[in-house]
């Protein structure tokens, strides 16, 4: 693995396209090797937060920097709620980001074979990715993210569209990624999932970070009334 890119630091970051602040005053460090769960009500800014960390959008104010000093390190990946799979075969989908990173053909073939094997996709290597089931598509998306050997993986509600069986498979994979040393930053509105996977919790409310603590502490006793209401299942604004 190349030079460590983590921790990722946000300092007083605001995201305000066309003047309206959707995220504001965010200050936080994403530490290497941890599993950070981002929580909050719909519209709290969880997805935007992930995109901002991942570099899909840039801060309107404040600083975002990686330990490696690069503006946007390559060793990071993101899995979307509805991943876009290319209209190609499963194997070609895995090959694509590797080709983008300039790997030689032989190295890519080897890496693709390894990934197919690791994720149980070898039997469907030549099938069109778009024709897989929802669970298989999400598995392929995870495999594609894993194939580039990321140091940090962002997951945006990766199981919200899946049935319980597929959800469990995805959760197991995330746990194994973590065991391999990959840092996880994941949004979810499934409290059970947050309890199962979270080591740290960041709680967003109306675009602001109002709690950032170890998961055990957060679930035992949230400090803010908003987080307490959220855990209690109240509708909050």
């Amino acid at each position: 693995m190349s030079a460590p890119i983590l921790p990722l630091s946000l300092e007083d970051v605001t995201y305000a396209p066309r003047g309206a602040a959707l995220l504001s005053g965010l200050t936080l460090r994403v530490e290497a090797g941890r599993r950070l769960i981002v929580m909050g009500a719909n519209g709290a800014g969880k997805s935007l937060f992930l995109r901002l960390c991942h570099g899909l959008i840039d801060p309107s104010a404040g600083r975002r920097f990686w330990a490696s000093g690069e503006p946007r390190p390559e060793a990071q990946a993101m899995v979307f709620q509805r991943p876009v799979l290319l209209r190609r075969s499963v194997a070609a989908n895995l090959d694509y980001p590797l080709a983008l990173r300039g790997l030689a053909r032989a190295a890519r073939r080897e890496a693709v074979a390894l990934t197919l094997d690791r994720f149980g996709l070898a039997a469907m290597a030549d099938r069109p990715a778009r024709l897989l089931s929802g669970g298989e598509q999400q598995r392929l998306a995870l495999a594609r993210a894993w194939a580039i050997r990321p140091q940090v993986l962002f997951l945006d509600e990766p199981t919200s569209a899946l049935d319980p069986a597929a959800t469990r498979i995805i959760e197991e994979m995330v746990a194994r990624f973590s065991d391999e040393g990959i840092t996880i930053v994941m949004t979810t509105h499934d409290l059970g999932q947050a309890r199962r996977l979270g080591q740290d919790v960041a709680f967003l409310h109306r675009g602001r970070l109002i709690e950032h603590r170890p998961a055990a502490d957060f679930f035992a006793g949230p400090e803010t009334p908003e987080a307490r209401a959220f855990l209690a299942g109240d509708l909050i604004w």
């Binding site: 995109r51 991942h54 899909l56 390559e74 990946a77 993101m78 979307f80 991943p83 876009v84 290319l86 694509y96 980001p97 983008l100 990173r101 594609r144 580039i148």
Partner: peptide, 18 residues
């Protein structure tokens, strides 16, 4: 495709053939 391609590391130019 925009977000997914940017996430995978393809810029606008590289997105053209894709």
């Amino acid at each position: 495709y925009r977000e997914q391609l940017l996430s995978l590391g393809a810029g606008r130019l590289r997105a053209v053939p894709t």
